[in-house]
């Protein structure tokens, strides 16, 4: 009896280890470039991400080709000339929620989160920091964040002729609904 109980406890504990991980495969990341001549927006609705609410570990994988633009030509140029998506198909983020102690993500509520980690775009990895919100409602964690990145940091070259069309600093918006990962 004792043994069965102990085994059960162990199994449940392990399962909970899984239940502490939240994921999405259809998260949304969009960006906008607001230059004097042109405003460019693109949306990606196929973002994969996993969040471990016990450790605060957070990872993202973003397929560059899944960013869609209003104009087909922009999308071609984005993939061909700027992000070189054949060479660098994915952008990734590996980081941590640094103020995990301030929140209780198993309970409903809204929290402000500070995130820190390494962002890799176009083969270049840079440390980034961003603030965001986490809203927990009945087991779904809705995460949002807005932050800026400098295009030149990622070795993405903007030729002179389009300098009025493409901003040097691009705003990134993250909008994710995490569901519990139970398998």
């Amino acid at each position: 009896m004792k043994i069965i109980a102990s085994v059960l406890i162990v199994v449940v504990a392990t399962l909970q280890g899984y239940a502490q991980k939240y994921f999405t495969r259809d998260g949304k990341i969009s960006f906008s470039s607001d230059a004097p001549m042109e405003k460019i927006e693109a949306v990606n609705n196929k973002v994969s991400s996993v969040l471990d609410i016990q450790t605060g570990d957070l990872e993202f994988a973003v397929l560059i080709k899944s960013f869609h633009f209003a104009k087909a030509l922009m999308e071609d140029h984005f993939n061909e000339n700027y992000l070189e998506s054949n060479k660098y198909p994915k952008a990734t983020f590996k980081g941590k929620i640094t103020n995990l102690a301030d929140m209780k993500l198993t309970l409903n509520g809204d929290y402000r989160a500070a995130v820190q980690g390494d962002l890799t775009i176009h083969g270049v990895t840079k440390p980034v920091q961003a603030d965001g919100t986490l809203s927990v409602l009945n087991g779904v964690i809705h995460a949002t964040s807005t932050f800026d990145i400098t295009v030149a940091d990622y070795n993405i070259e903007i030729p002179k002729v389009v300098r009025e069309n493409i901003a040097k600093i691009v705003q990134i918006r993250v909008d994710i609904n995490y569901k519990s990962l139970e398998e």
Binding site: S6, G17, Y18, K21, S48, L58, A61
Partner: peptide
């Protein structure tokens, strides 16, 4: 018991190494 416990925690640990590989 300890062995089983270790095994499970080892499993949980490997799962934690690369979160995205869970998907």
């Amino acid at each position: 018991l300890i062995a089983i416990n270790l095994l499970f925690s080892a499993l949980a640990l490997t799962a934690q190494e690369d979160l995205l590989s869970l998907l």
